[in-house]
Computed example of a mutant assay.
Amino acid sequence: MSGNNELYTNINYNNVYTSGFRTGNLILEQWKLSENKPLKDFISNTTQLPEADSVSTISNTELSAPVSSDNFVIRLRGYIIPPVSDKYVFNIAGKDSCILLLSNDTSVKNAKVIALVNQATSPREWAKADEQQSDSIYLEAGEKYYIEILLKALSNENNLAVAWSSSMFSKEIIYDQYLSLPEIEITDTTDTTIIDTTDTTLIIDNIIDKNISIYPNPVLNHLTVKINELVNNSFTAIIYNNIGSKVFEYDIKDKITRLNISNLKSGLYILQIKNEKNQWLFKIYKL
Rank of each mutant, 00 (worst) to 15 (best):
L100P: 05
L100K: 08
L101R: 00
L101Y: 03
L101D: 06
L102H: 00
L102D: 04
S103G: 10
N104H: 15
N104V: 14
T106Q: 14
V108C: 00
V108I: 03
K109H: 00
K109S: 04
K109L: 07
N110P: 11
A111T: 08
A111M: 03
A111K: 06
A111D: 09
A111S: 05
K112N: 12
I114N: 05
L116Q: 13
L116E: 13
L116P: 10
L116M: 11
V117N: 00
V117P: 04
V117I: 01
Q119R: 01
A120H: 02
A120V: 01
T121F: 06
T121N: 08
T121Q: 07
P123G: 03
R124S: 03
E125N: 09
W126Y: 11
W126V: 07
A127W: 06
A129K: 03
A129Y: 04
A129V: 08
D130Y: 01
D130V: 06
Q132D: 01
S134F: 06
S134T: 03
D135Q: 14
I137P: 14
Y138Q: 09
L139I: 08
E140A: 06
E140S: 12
G142D: 08
K144F: 10
Y145Q: 12
Y145R: 15
Y146D: 01
I147D: 02
L151W: 14
A153R: 01
A153V: 01
L154K: 15
S155M: 01
N156V: 06
N159C: 00
A163D: 07
W164M: 14
S165I: 06
S167H: 11
M168E: 13
M168N: 13
F169H: 11
S170I: 06
S170E: 07
E172L: 13
I173K: 07
I173R: 07
I174T: 10
I174P: 05
Y175P: 13
L179R: 08
P182V: 12
P182C: 11
E183R: 09
I184Y: 10
E185R: 00
I186F: 01
I186N: 04
I186P: 04
T187R: 10
T189A: 07
T189E: 03
T189V: 04
T190E: 09
I194V: 03
I194W: 02
T197F: 02
T198M: 01
D199K: 02
T200G: 11
L202T: 14
I203L: 15
I204P: 05
I204H: 12
I204R: 15
D205S: 08
I207V: 14
I208D: 09
I208L: 15
D209Q: 03
D209R: 09
